[in-house]
Design a protein around this nucleic acid. Sequence first.
DNA 1: CAGGTTGCTGCCGTTTCGGCAACAGCTATA
DNA 2: TATAGCTGTTGCCGAAACGGCAGCAACCTG
Lengths: 312, 312
Amino acid sequence: MRFHSPSIQYFHAVRRTGSIRAAARLLNVASSAVSRQILKLEREVGSPLFERTARGLTLTTVGEMLARHVMNVLQDLDRFRSDVASLSGAWHGTISIACIESLTESVLPDLIASHRSRAKRVSFTTEVMGSSDVLEALRRGEADIGIAIALRHPPDLRQVALKRFRLGALVAREHPLARRKTVTLEQCLAFPVIQALPELSIYHLLQPLIAQLSETPEPAILANSIDLMRELAARGVGVAFQTQLGIIRLSRDAQLVFLPLDNAGSPVWSDLGIYVRAERTLPAFTDSFLQELVRELGERERRESAAYPHVT
Amino acid sequence: MRFHSPSIQYFHAVRRTGSIRAAARLLNVASSAVSRQILKLEREVGSPLFERTARGLTLTTVGEMLARHVMNVLQDLDRFRSDVASLSGAWHGTISIACIESLTESVLPDLIASHRSRAKRVSFTTEVMGSSDVLEALRRGEADIGIAIALRHPPDLRQVALKRFRLGALVAREHPLARRKTVTLEQCLAFPVIQALPELSIYHLLQPLIAQLSETPEPAILANSIDLMRELAARGVGVAFQTQLGIIRLSRDAQLVFLPLDNAGSPVWSDLGIYVRAERTLPAFTDSFLQELVRELGERERRESAAYPHVT
DNA sequence: CAGGTTGCTGCCGTTTCGGCAACAGCTATA
DNA sequence: TATAGCTGTTGCCGAAACGGCAGCAACCTG
C-alpha cells in the first residue's frame, strides 16, 4: 500500500534525519537515489528545499512548507490505512504519546492498562519530556497526542481540552505542616523546600510568587524530576510542590500529604492541556483513546474540586 | 510541481467522471493507462475501489475511504502551492463558492466586488443551488466555501459560523399589509400568497407553521426562485416570504416592504450556516475571504436585530 | 442486428528509478 | 599538516514502471 511517490517519503526521511545518507540507511536504498529525488523535488517546486551545510541539511522556508504538506499527507495516509483495516474487524495500531512527568504516576498507566484490557491490538509509545518539547514533538509528527502545561500553543496545534489542577505542597505525614488543610507559600518557606529547576513548569508557576515575597527560601534541594521530588518529600527532607495528579497512589497509602496552596487567598492553578496537530484527522482507534483521556482528566479535575472546594 | 503518483490523480479523475475513458479524455492520456493505474491501486490496497457496472464505475466503501484521503491530499497540495506562490508576493488563485439563492442579490456581489478591488488576482467561481446540494458540493470537493440553510451538517463539514435572520413577509408598497410593523402568518394568509416549492428551504420553515393553522392558504402562485418571488411581490401579485437578505437594494428603493413574521409572539428564524470541509486547511487567500464573509454576515445580522428588536 | 458504449489486456518504445563507483568539499583527529 | 571519515553529487547501466496503440469481450441502445 505505497501509492505515493517515493520522493515525498524520501523527503520526509531526510527532514527527520537531517542527512541524505542517514535517510538512505533508514530507507534501505542507495544515498544517490535519495539525493536524486530531493534534487528532482527542488526542480519541480522551483526552489531549494534544504540548505546544504558541511554536515547535513536544514530546511529552508519553502522546505518547511513542503514538510507540513508531506506530514499532512503521510499522517492522513496512516489514518486511511487504519480505516481500511478496521473495516475488516482488525482494530490495531500504535498510539504515540508525548507528555510531562506528572502523568506517569497514575493517570497514564491506569488509562493505558484499562484501554489495553479492552483493545489488545492497540499498542502505545509514550515519551516523557518538558512541556515545550511536547508541543515540538507534536509539530514534528513524532507524537499523536501531547499532554503539557497549557502554554500559548502554536496555531498548528489544537488544544483538545484544558483541565486545571491545584498546585499544592507535598509533605511527609510527620511534617509539622501535615495537619493543615491548606498552606500558603510563606508557611512552606519556613521549612526546607525542594525546588524545581527551570526546566520544570512548576518553576515558572512558583517563581513569580516567590519573587513577590520578602524572604528568600532556605536553600535545600534543586531537582528536575517530579519523581525524585516526591520521594524526597516522602522521606521528610522538605516541602515539594506539585499537582495532586502525581501522588494519588502514595497519598492513598498515607505516606504523603497533599496541601493545596493558597496565594493571597486564591488557589494556584496548574493548567494541563491536551494537544493534537490541528491539520490532521486521527485514526479511529487513536481518537477513541483521546476521548477517554479527556474524560479521565475531566473526572480527576471534578474529583479534586469536590475534595478541595474553592470560590471562584 | 507534480510530485504525487499519477495513480491518485487518475483515481480522482475517475471518481469525478465515473468512467475510466472519460477520465482518460480529461487527463489527455490513453484509457489503458488509467485502467492500469486503477487496477494497480486496487492491488495495493488489497480491495476493489470501484464497482464495475455496464456504464461506468461506482465507488465501493473502501473506494470512498480512499477518495476522502485523495481529496485531502490534493486539496492540501493546492494550499501548499498557493503558500509557495504567496511567498514570492503573488497572491492569486480561485475561490469556489456554493451558496443558496438568498445571497445573490446583495451579500455576495457586494463582498466579491469589494474583495476584488483589493486583491485583483483572486478570481471567483460561484454556483447557486439548494442547501443540501451546497453541502454535497463541499463534500465532493467541488467548492471551497458553502453557504446554506443550517441543517444538520455531516461530520466531515465544519460550520464556520451560524447567523440567524428573521423570516418575513414581502409585499409591495401599496399592499394593505404594508403599513404594519410586523405581521403574523394568519394575517398574510388572508391575501394571495406566493408559496415556495419544497426544493426551497423556506418551504420547510413555513410548512409546519401553516399546518398548525385551521385555514389553508388561498392558492396563488408556487415558485422555486427567490428572485421570481421577489419580483412578483413587487408587482403586487401577492405576499412572498423571505429573509431580508435578498431584498436590501429593493427595499431601499421603497418598492418592496419587508415585514418581520411573528408566530405565537416569537420571531421565525432562518439560520444561515457557513461551511467548509473539516479535513482541510484553506489557502491563505481563501481563508482571508472567508473571514470577510463571516464578518459581513455578522454585521448584517447585527443591523437587522437593531432594526427589528425582539425579546429572546 | 449494427453501432455505439464500457473496461481490460498483449505488445513495445520511452521514461524513470535505483545501485555502484568515483568525485569534490568539508571536519575532526592524529 | 596529513589522513581518515564524513558529507552531497554525478556518470554509467540494468531493471522496473509508464504510456500509447490496437484489439478483445461484454453491455446498452437504437
